[in-house]
């Protein structure tokens, strides 16, 4: 750490925040059963399978 420049120490703070944010979200999601970027409720049959579905019908 003592060899880090002032600039690097400044950057390090942001990276630590970034890493803590990511892992924090991951741990929170795991604890509460939250599926990150959950799109299930809006998922529609026509969007998901429309093309192949009607093609094969």
């Amino acid at each position: 750490m003592k060899n880090l420049s002032k600039h690097e120490l400044f950057s390090l703070r942001y990276f630590i925040v970034f890493y803590l944010l990511i892992t924090g979200v991951f741990v929170y999601a795991g604890m509460t059963g939250w599926k990150i970027l959950d799109t299930t409720p809006s998922e529609k049959h026509s969007n998901a399978y429309g093309t192949s579905h009607y093609y094969h019908k």
Partner: peptide, 19 residues
């Protein structure tokens, strides 16, 4: 009820690698 979610894990790994 209460099943492991692997998509969370892979998304987190992707975010970590992205930086």
């Amino acid at each position: 009820r209460d099943v492991p979610v692997w998509s969370n894990y892979f998304m987190t790994i992707a975010a970590l690698i992205l930086l």
